[in-house]
Design a protein around this nucleic acid. Structure first.
Length: 508
DNA sequence: TTCCGACAGTGGGGTCGCAAT
DNA sequence: ATTGCGACCCCACTATCGGAA
């Protein structure tokens, strides 16, 4: 199939707000694919090429200046082969080799095709259809049950393989896709609750309340001595974490799939900051810091699949297997007891708690309401220093706020000035975006191509999870997960919180 | 008819490895 | 040695469609 047909279908998908129309357009496209084109096409449509890491980003694409072809000639398989060569070049030294490949591809593509391929490589198609919509389209094209397609995709962790199987295999083959030790599963995700009490009440009965650690999600598969460790996005990082492999080899289980979190501890046994855990977790060459695993769920044990069992059953099995690596937790229907446990978690230096319904199955790949995370929220009054122009549906609107804390002593600048501590675009409603776009130009001091700088007069209440040390910002701290709660026209810049009060959050 | 679950989009900070400077 | 880029950890929130109630 010509790439041009994929581009045309994608344009149709992007042009309609209706999900049913998107699904219909995608299903029609999928039906026309040859079997060998399914996996590459799914990679294009989700803007995550099957080749994985390409080493091509916005910078290298914008540096290209090549003319495009007048008419379409590229096929899906042509582009797939070009991406193969790009992926092979990544990590092999030459930027020039990648640029050569990109230039060749660019010259063979029409401008519409190149625009599409560039968005695929950047991982942002922005047509309103990703995995969720595409799953339904695959089911429609293959005339299979959407829930069967979804289940196969989540359990295999591979949408492309699932699409190929759905479109070319039998319904029985699709149904037969299940858990395999050694093949990672899409992890179950959580929603947010305001408090432990609220979470217990929302679950309406007995809940498992567990520590929520500020580390990295891990999924561990063990088959005898063969242990594999995967990240949340299913990357195999076994070679980076030998200490986790060793810990899992000690467990009393031959074949097991465990879900958990890893982080590193300080000398006193308390959790290190997330940044320290990530420095170790992300490093190929082992460091002084040691990672420890904590497991909160078990999906398989010695031939028995557990993910459709209720959480209460899975926890009983986990109790026998995980030993000291079991995530601390309690089972209770008492909201007060849950609150008490939450306070214990915070006192131990952890992020908060997870509250889970004990009747719930393990819903791979879903962000349901049966897992609720509870973390304390801090709020600060900060001052807007500048606002960046938005992109996509926020094009033409002032969106991303530069936030400053008051610096009365001038420790990081002029006395009485403001020190930038982060940005945020979150929490803004359409009405607030319109207001920002009208308001900030009226107090503009100057502007750059990307932002309008303003007099530091506007106070905004910002919610954060905490702060982290920063080399980017002059005050040495950056906000973590900042979002707008609301503007505070009742407050003046002199009422804003200080850099000192943010810095005290760094320790303890 | 109204409600609400699921999705997609819009980006945030920090860390690494790697190649170019 | 330093810097810039790309990938990938962590992540919150709003708007919207369409099925569920």
């Amino acid at each position: 199939m010509l790439l041009n047909e994929v581009v045309a279908a994608t344009e149709a998908v992007g042009a309609t707000p209706s999900r049913l129309a998107k699904i219909a357009a995608l299903a029609a496209l999928l039906r026309g694919l040859d079997p060998g084109e399914v996996r590459p096409a799914i990679g294009f449509l989700t803007a995550s090429p099957r080749q994985g890491r390409l080493g091509v980003g916005w910078r290298s694409l914008s540096a290209l200046e090549t003319p495009h072809a007048a008419g379409p000639s590229l096929t899906i398989l042509d582009v797939d082969a070009a991406l193969d060569r790009l992926a092979a070049a990544d990590g092999q030294g030459s930027v020039a080799a990648r640029r050569g490949e990109l230039t060749l591809l660019s010259e063979r593509a029409t401008s519409a095709e190149w625009d599409f391929v560039a968005r695929v490589m950047l991982g942002e198609l922005r047509t309103g259809a990703l995995e969720g919509v595409l799953l339904d389209a695959i089911a429609k094209a293959a005339e299979r049950d959407a829930s069967a397609v979804r289940r196969a995709a989540m359990l295999s962790g591979d949408l492309g393989a699932t699409a190929e199987l759905a479109l070319t295999g039998s319904a029985d083959e699709l149904e037969a896709v299940g858990l395999v030790v050694g093949r990672p599963v899409m992890p179950m995700l959580a929603s947010t609750a305001g408090s432990a009490t609220e979470a217990v009440q929302a679950l309406g009965g007995t809940a498992s309340v567990e520590y929520k650690l500020d580390g990295a999600r891990i999924q561990v598969h063990r088959d005898g001595d063969d242990v594999r460790v995967y990240t949340r996005s299913l990357a195999d990082i076994t070679h980076r974490v030998p200490e986790i492999v060793e810990a899992v080899r000690e467990l009393p289980a031959e074949r097991v799939i465990l879900d958990g979190e890893t982080l590193s501890l300080d000398e006193d046994g308390g959790p290190r900051p997330f940044q320290d855990t990530m420095a170790r977790f992300g490093s190929e060459s082992g460091a002084a810091v040691v990672l420890r695993p904590w497991f909160f769920d078990i999906l398989h044990l010695d031939g028995r699949d557990l993910l459709d069992e209720p959480l209460s059953t899975r926890l009983e099995v986990l109790e026998r297997v995980a030993g000291a690596s079991r995530m601390p937790g309690i089972v209770t229907d008492d909201a007060d007891r849950a609150e008490e446990f939450s306070r214990e978690a915070l006192a131990a230096g952890h992020e908060g708690v997870m509250v889970k319904g004990v009747e719930s199955a393990y819903a791979a790949g879903r962000r349901g309401k049966s897992w609720l995370k509870v973390k304390p929220v801090l709020t600060f009054d900060l001052v807007v220093l500048a606002v960046e122009w938005g992109s996509g549906r926020r094009t033409g609107q002032l969106s991303n706020l530069h936030l400053g804390a008051r610096d009365p002593e001038g420790a990081y600048g002029e006395p009485g000035g403001f020190v930038m501590v982060g940005k945020t675009f979150k929490g803004l409603t359409d009405a607030l975006l319109r207001w920002q776009t009208e308001h900030f130009p009226t107090i503009e001091t100057h502007r750059s191509s990307s932002a309008v700088h303003v007099r530091p007069e506007t106070v905004v209440e910002i919610a954060i999870d905490g702060v982290q040390r920063s080399t980017r910002y002059p005050g040495g701290v950056a906000l973590r997960f900042a979002r707008v709660k609301g503007y505070r026209p009742d407050k003046s810049p002199g009422d804003a919180d200080t850099i000192g009060s943010l810095r005290t959050l760094l320790r303890g």
